Simulated scan of single mutants.
Amino acid sequence: MTSRTLYLFGSAAPPVFDVAEVIADAQERGFDVCLGLTPTAARWLGDRLGRLAELTGHPVRSEYKLPGEPDVWPKADGIVFAPATFNTVNAWALGLTRDFVVGVVAEGIGKGIPTVTMPCVNAAYVQHRQFERSVGELRDMGVEVLYGEGGFAPNQPGRGEPKEFPWGLALDAAERIVRPVP
């Protein structure tokens, strides 16, 4: 069976430190994984980037390529963006594509690439009205947002448990939204 290509994107939230295990789980589910990170997440994982590239078989990306450079990843069959921070969710919904991964998912909406995201935000951030607006905008554009019941539930500031981040829900959604390869 030919693998389906999954772009796995992450922002700088503590669950991103578990991304190697998530990659392995996605590969066991039959996905060829390409890892993309926000610049801050890439800095957090700096000493692990080489190992993560070996694990996926693709370069880890956190920056746009230069004009004329070839693509180094196969085309995506689906995208999972988790953890997605407050900043990432809002930037994506507003179309602010300074970061490579936000640019890819913003364009992915127009390309019809099945996409799921799971925010990782605390209860103080979600009090800002823009967050709920952004979640609604992404859902209206066809992004499956795993937030609230059946997804990520915000914790009190400083009380998050990164190991409890429900990564399995994101990969279950990816299996559901990405068409099987014949």
Score class of each variant (00 low, 15 high):
residue 118 M to D: 04
residue 130 Q to Y: 03
residue 158 G to V: 11
residue 136 G to M: 02
residue 119 P to F: 03
residue 125 Y to K: 14
residue 122 N to F: 05
residue 158 G to K: 15
residue 156 Q to I: 13
residue 131 F to M: 09
residue 143 V to E: 04
residue 121 V to M: 07
residue 137 E to H: 04
residue 136 G to C: 03
residue 152 F to V: 07
residue 120 C to G: 10
residue 118 M to E: 05
residue 144 E to I: 01
residue 119 P to T: 14
residue 150 G to R: 13
residue 124 A to L: 15
residue 120 C to K: 08
residue 133 R to E: 03
residue 146 L to D: 01
residue 135 V to K: 04
residue 132 E to G: 07
residue 148 G to I: 09
residue 124 A to M: 11
residue 158 G to I: 13
residue 142 G to S: 07
residue 135 V to A: 07
residue 151 G to S: 03
residue 132 E to T: 10
residue 141 M to L: 14
residue 146 L to R: 00
residue 123 A to W: 03
residue 121 V to Y: 00
residue 122 N to G: 11
residue 142 G to E: 05
residue 122 N to C: 08
residue 153 A to I: 12
residue 139 R to M: 06
residue 123 A to D: 13
residue 138 L to M: 10
residue 139 R to A: 08
residue 154 P to S: 13
residue 118 M to L: 08
residue 137 E to W: 01
residue 144 E to T: 10
residue 156 Q to T: 15
residue 157 P to C: 14
residue 152 F to R: 05
residue 137 E to K: 12
residue 148 G to C: 09
residue 128 H to M: 14
residue 118 M to W: 03
residue 124 A to V: 11
residue 123 A to F: 02
residue 140 D to A: 13
residue 148 G to D: 09
residue 152 F to I: 10
residue 158 G to C: 10
residue 148 G to H: 09
residue 139 R to C: 06
residue 140 D to Q: 03
residue 140 D to E: 01
residue 129 R to I: 02
residue 129 R to G: 09
residue 142 G to D: 05
residue 143 V to P: 01
residue 132 E to W: 00
residue 150 G to N: 10
residue 118 M to P: 05
residue 153 A to W: 01
residue 123 A to G: 14
residue 138 L to I: 08
residue 140 D to W: 00
residue 144 E to V: 13
residue 133 R to G: 01
residue 120 C to Y: 11
residue 154 P to T: 14
residue 123 A to R: 14
residue 122 N to T: 11
residue 118 M to R: 09
residue 119 P to V: 13
residue 148 G to A: 06
residue 158 G to Q: 15
residue 157 P to G: 14
residue 154 P to K: 12
residue 124 A to T: 09
residue 133 R to F: 00
residue 152 F to Y: 14
residue 148 G to N: 07
residue 123 A to I: 10
residue 126 V to K: 11
residue 156 Q to S: 10
residue 151 G to T: 15
residue 147 Y to R: 07
residue 125 Y to F: 15
residue 155 N to W: 09
residue 157 P to S: 08
residue 141 M to N: 07
residue 138 L to H: 01
residue 153 A to L: 14
residue 137 E to M: 12
residue 146 L to T: 06
residue 144 E to G: 01
residue 120 C to I: 04
residue 154 P to I: 12
residue 144 E to H: 03
residue 120 C to R: 12
residue 155 N to I: 13
residue 154 P to M: 09
residue 121 V to L: 03
residue 130 Q to F: 06
residue 121 V to D: 00
residue 131 F to T: 13
residue 149 E to L: 05
residue 125 Y to S: 13
residue 146 L to G: 01
residue 118 M to G: 08
residue 141 M to A: 12
residue 131 F to N: 09
